[in-house]
């Protein structure tokens, strides 16, 4: 076991991906000499060369469009979008091409492209640097959408994403980049949880809290706080947003009878809405309360001096947990 920050764990995972497959490439803005603005690709260009770790021109549509071309030629690009708010120039390439080309070909085309996106708020940044656009991608058939909550998952999941023959949109919780945890970098990934599986992080019996990315830590803290009030919270880290691991989700909700979904993203039309609908359809008779959602209001991400009010925190999660007992 080695103690690593999430940034470092992703870096080690990317290094493994480059070592394990000579076709793997890294491309993005400032990923080379600088090692990315969050240092996730630190040192990789030095060790693997400019042909495999590519500082691209400043054009996100170009990054994804050329990655698709490279993939058609047998390469496996791992792209970095510098910040969540800058994925939109690439949105057309992702939605209309990356997600649909296999379907268009009726099978023969595979596009093993990973799109890494640091996402979410809480870092005191200016506009476009704190967004949570994951639902837009989860809504798009033809993409796998995942998010890691901490270093151990970051290390494993980025390698699994690199090995996936499908496009993977890989959301990294940027405010957790400097969180540390033990990571097993010695043993391989044979026993690792599959990329599309959710993980029951903290078992509990009274209420299920579903979360992913930056909210995994917050919800874990909420579970600890709730246990002080005599409430047993089961925390499930969804990890995969498309597809959803509904088996794990339903099993937990059938056990607890209550569910709160937590994400930083806008609640309206979000991942939580999708999950709530599915739970209602499948677990209706097990429910003691409606599925509640904790997330952002239907406003753009506010200036950073307001983000503490915008983002779900311990209090808002506990408040929602309490409310599930009011029915």
């Amino acid at each position: 076991m080695t103690t690593l920050t999430l940034s470092r764990a992703l870096n080690e995972g990317l290094r493994k991906a480059l070592e394990n497959n000579p076709k793997a490439l890294i491309m993005g803005e400032d990923v080379g000499k600088l090692g990315g603005v969050f240092r996730v690709t630190d040192g990789l260009q030095k060790d693997f060369g400019e042909a495999r770790v590519i500082d691209t021109p400043l054009a996100e549509s170009g990054i994804i469009g050329t990655a698709i071309g490279l993939a058609l030629r047998g390469y496996r690009p791992i792209c970095e979008i510098q910040f969540d708010g800058f994925v939109f120039p690439a949105f057309d390439q992702i939605v209309s091409q990356l997600a649909k080309m296999r379907y268009r070909s009726r099978g023969p085309v595979r596009l093993p492209v990973v799109v890494r996106i640091p996402f979410g708020g809480g870092i005191g940044a200016v506009e476009h640097h704190s967004e949570s656009p994951e639902a837009l991608f989860a809504h798009t058939p033809g993409l796998r959408v995942v998010s890691c909550g901490g270093p151990a998952d970051g290390y494993a999941m980025i390698q699994q994403a690199a090995e996936s023959d499908d496009p993977v949109i890989f959301f990294e919780p940027k405010r957790r980049y400097w969180d540390k945890a033990d990571v097993d970098v010695e043993t391989g990934l044979a026993d690792a949880l599959p990329l599309a599986a959710a993980r029951v992080l903290i078992p509990g019996s009274d209420v299920t809290v579903l979360c992913y990315g930056p909210m995994v830590r917050t919800c874990s803290e909420a579970a600890v706080a709730a246990s002080g009030d005599g409430r047993s919270v089961e925390v499930v880290d969804l990890r995969s947003l498309a597809p959803l691991d509904t088996a794990t989700i339903f099993a937990s909700v059938r056990k607890t009878g209550r569910c709160v979904v937590v994400h930083e993203a806008v609640v309206t039309g979000g991942i939580g809405a999708e999950i709530a609908a599915r739970i209602t359809e499948e677990c209706f008779y097990s429910l003691e309360a409606p599925v509640l959602r904790v997330g952002a209001p239907t406003t753009p991400y506010p200036p950073s001096r307001l983000e503490e009010h915008y983002l779900p925190d311990l209090d808002r999660i506990l408040d929602a947990v309490d409310r599930t007992f009011g029915y």
Binding site: L18, E19, N20, P22, K23, D47, F48, G49, A51
Partner: peptide, 18 residues
């Protein structure tokens, strides 16, 4: 061992700059 694997992967995909 990790380092050596890295070197092999490196030389396998040596591409001249544009």
């Amino acid at each position: 061992a990790v380092k050596d694997a890295g070197r092999a992967a490196r030389s396998a995909s040596r591409v001249p700059p544009a």
